[in-house]
Nucleic acid binder design. Structure first.
Lengths: 217, 217
DNA sequence: CATGATTGACTGATCGACCAGTCAGTGCAA
DNA sequence: TTGCACTGACTGGTCGATCAGTCAATCATG
């Protein structure tokens, strides 16, 4: 079968890492179905058979890519979340920044998050299982954090905010120049810092409105 | 080549309509790449060759599906938008309802919108062209409507609100039970009416926060 | 130290399955 | 009898996957 650590975490195998990188690029650019093992092997400059040697199947290679990327994103998210001051007035802003920044960061794989999200929309059952495995645990943590930051919001309120926040994140991740086109190229294309601020501001405002609406009942 | 209207809009061809319906289901369930012409023809209960007879290629069949669905959604959106009272306090709410309701309506194709959005995320160039053709004109109308409903928001503010609103919409369209799972099955699964209200409330709140933040500068 | 066995990384050739797309031909209605 | 809707049989190409075999490094043994 595949491979195991030589002794500990010594460099595993040069080919394996090359394949993972090439696969992430290819899957990210084309999606699971459209990305071919041949294209991945070409990009990685290894034989196509090596992909099966290391990962067994295209499905498993894909899962490994998602696992690796989600680990980085989630580690970063949790680290940021640990620094949040829940006594602060803008606790929710800090929580949301911890949620958004790692996904939007250039080294964060950028579209990796958006891609798997897209896979879910499209209805791939495997993607749903991967989300459960890779993202659910951290999602629970953030659900709790949102509730801590917004007392009186309730579990279903936090759920709604989390879900909507992810939607906003994906819309931001999929920036492809459409907005600039629609606006007739007015307005400067904003940098990452400003974009994050806008997203956070938007979601915080939405969350407040949701809480207000709830209390009005 | 394909087909043209017999005289006007007399029922075109029974097979053609069956194919369009089956194709929409299949594309919606699996995405463009994973959906096969054979699966579509089987579902439509016609020969596979008939798909090429009517539409020429898989790509063109897909485009026809998107065109048909987007036309229904956009017609409905514009009709709703015509009824908006821009003097009202909740003009933005009305505009957003006009944007959301047709996409979330059961007969609105539901996931049709989410699917093409997913295609864009995944990076299919063809999807980008389709969006431009099918959704950009109506998007301009809504961009203007948002500005009318929110004076002092500016073009880039309206653009951000529109973009984020679509993100929230997609997150709502892709409901697949994940939230219920994350919340431990607390909280009732909300009906469409309540969901729309929540989305609208959220986006209105976000838009207000964005405007506020802008004015603070 | 020498040497044969073993192992893991890796490849080229090749497989059957399935894909979108083609085409000659059938039946039916005007 | 012309034209349109439609089909069955087929094609070339690409897909993921398999497998026998190469090669270098490691290890066991005398």
């Amino acid at each position: 079968m595949g491979v195991a650590a030589k002794k500990q975490s010594e460099e595993l195998s040069p080919g394996r890492e090359k394949i993972l990188g090439a696969a992430e690029q290819e899957f990210s650019a084309s999606g699971f179905e459209a990305a071919s093992m041949k294209a991945i092997s070409t990009r990685a400059d290894v034989s196509q058979a090596l992909l099966h040697y290391h990962f067994g199947s295209k499905e498993r290679l894909y899962a490994e890519v998602i696992r690796a990327r989600s680990k980085k994103i989630n580690d970063s998210r949790r680290a940021l979340l640990d620094q949040v001051d829940f006594e602060s007035d803008d606790a929710l802003s800090q929580v949301l920044e911890a949620l958004f920044r790692p996904a939007l960061a250039p080294e964060g794989g950028g579209k990796a998050y958006a891609r798997i999200f897209a896979g879910m929309i499209v209805g791939r059952a495997h993607d749903r299982e991967l989300v459960r495995e890779c993202y659910d645990p951290t999602a629970h943590v953030f659900l709790d954090a949102i509730q801590r930051a917004c007392p009186g919001m309730g579990i279903e309120g936090a759920g709604a905010v989390y879900q909507f926040a992810l939607g906003v994140l994906v819309s931001a991740l999929s920036r492809d120049g459409r907005m600039e086109r629609l606006m007739g190229h007015q307005g400067a294309l904003l940098g990452d810092q400003i974009l994050i601020r806008k997203i956070v501001t938007f979601v915080v405002g939405g969350a407040a409105a949701l809480t207000e609406d709830r209390e009005r009942l």
